[in-house]
């Protein structure tokens, strides 16, 4: 790897799947046995980004946006249709042993630990595959077990563990070889809030201790907010945004939220902005970002204000807005495309 190259280098990466298509119904099913029609689905289109060593990057997008496909190409599981991927200086799809030793993949909805064995036994198998020296293995394993507060759970067959415990045990197994690049695909899916926090702090700790690079997909914005300074938003296989989490709001949502509590109860605040809610005497207003300072000073001048807050809208709302915008843009582009090339 040259000194200048990023840990993850992706340039104009595309992946097209060929999938069989058929109409619903028996007749169509019978027809497809003989003559199968295919359709090209562009899962990832000309995606480019760089990720530096030690960065934790959130990979956001709705279901089917191409997140998992991209992760799989970065892990060497899928061959790209076109474009360039280099991770730690290696071409992932070559699946060289030196490369694979330095990465790991955690998928929230799938297990790598053997169902009927205690996690402890699965760790032994992992140790054999990675050929880890006994001492390093034991040290890492015990430290992670301690950090995740797993205790005796690792002696029970994995099938007897709760979802949260299983995920913790999965993380230990996935990181035993101390990889430098982590691909985490929905690692907290289905977990309760406490467990999510536990996993998050573990990932943060691992990232700090080993300087690991982390690429995370999650539908829980709390994960992203807690771990990622930078996010890449992907939709319909294309990158919509790549930058700081805070900039995402500034770029896509042109509003701010002002929370106002009045000393003498509730007043009609609609002249100042969109009232989006009133709760326990606190009214919430949505106002244009640029007007926020002016409106705030007017509120303070006109009314007897007990408490006032100015916030960015919740990140979930911003993301929703981004996707709504993007879908509209894509639809418009497709309409224009089909108008330009009539078949």
């Amino acid at each position: 790897m040259t000194a200048a190259e990023s840990t993850i280098h992706v340039d104009a990466l595309s992946k097209t799947f060929r999938v069989p298509v058929r109409e619903a119904g028996l007749r169509a099913a019978a027809k497809s046995l003989v003559h199968r029609e295919h359709k090209d689905v562009r899962a990832v289109e000309a995606v480019s980004f760089e990720i530096q060593a030690g960065e934790v990057v959130g990979f956001l997008g709705p279901n089917g946006a191409g997140k998992t496909t991209t992760l799989k190409m970065l892990a060497g599981l899928l061959y790209p249709t076109s474009g360039v991927v280099r991770v730690l200086g290696h071409v992932p799809s070559r699946r060289e042993s030196v490369f694979l030793r330095q990465i790991t993949m955690v998928m929230g909805n799938r297990n790598q630990l053997q169902w009927d064995l205690p996690a402890l036994d699965s760790y032994e198998l992992i140790r054999a595959i990675y050929r880890l020296p006994a001492e390093q293995f034991r040290e890492t394993r015990d430290a992670f077990i301690e950090l995740l507060d797993l205790g005796d759970q690792i002696r029970k067959p994995v099938r007897n563990l709760s979802l949260g415990e299983r995920m913790k045990a999965e993380f230990v197994g996935a990181l035993l070889h101390r990889p430098g690049v982590l691909y985490l695909d929905e690692p907290t899916i289905g977990l309760d809030v406490t467990m999510q926090k536990r996993i998050r702090s573990f990932v943060a700790e691992y990232n700090q201790q080993y300087g690991a690079t982390v690429l995370l997909t999650s539908h829980y914005m709390a994960d992203v907010e807690a771990l990622c300074k930078r996010v890449i938003v992907i939709h319909h296989g294309r990158i919509l945004f790549d930058g700081g989490l805070a900039d995402l709001a500034a770029r896509f949502d042109s509003t701010k939220t002002i929370g106002v509590t009045l000393r003498d109860g509730v007043a009609d605040l609609s002249p100042y902005g969109d009232v989006i809610g009133t709760e326990d005497g606190k009214s919430t207003l949505r106002v244009p970002r640029a007007d926020a300072p002016r409106i705030t000073s007017r509120l303070l001048a006109d009314l007897d204000v007990a408490d006032l807050t100015i916030e960015d809208p919740p990140i979930e709302d911003v993301i929703e807005l981004v996707f709504a915008d993007a879908s509209r843009a894509v639809d418009e582009a497709r309409t224009a495309e089909s108008a330009a090339s009539p078949r």
């Binding site: 892990a75 990465i103 799938r110």
Partner: peptide
């Protein structure tokens, strides 16, 4: 089930 991914990301002959 898609769990072959785990095996394929191991540094050994698949």
């Amino acid at each position: 089930r898609g769990t072959l991914d785990f095996t394929l990301t191991k540094p050994d002959d698949s």
